[in-house]
Amino acid sequence: MKLKNILAPELITVDVRGTTKKEIIQELLGLLVKAGRVSEVDMVLGELMERERKMSTGIQHGVAIPHAKTKAVKNLVACIGIKKEGFDFQSLDGEPSRIFIMTLSPIDRVGPHVQFLAEISMVIKTEEARARLIQAKNAQEVLAVFGL
């Protein structure tokens, strides 16, 4: 799976403004809609929130990975949002989440979906990479962290 095919500057924001879980997820989903990757917004939003309700996707070190399986996409899509001041995403270590990586994968197609999430989280495993993401001024600087 090539990051280059999935991530693009229009799928990245370094200024997430939402102040609730729903608003943040909605904002990220907006990026995918604007880029023409998702159309059925309400359905997808419901699915993402449903996944959050089951168990928060806020993992450690200020990273959250909201994700869902949905009929609304035919291939894996992803977007990234940075919220410098952070937001309490009910993550495991209680740390506010600053880096949001959202993925949507097709429900009925076999493919490396979680594997993509794992690969991306491997990149941001180091504190240095995470610091570079949080300090990024634009989408290009975010992509550079992923070697793009």
Partner: peptide, 12 residues
Amino acid sequence: SFVRLMMLDTLA
């Protein structure tokens, strides 16, 4: 990380 994420989603 991949295995942990897989287990996490299954647990959810």
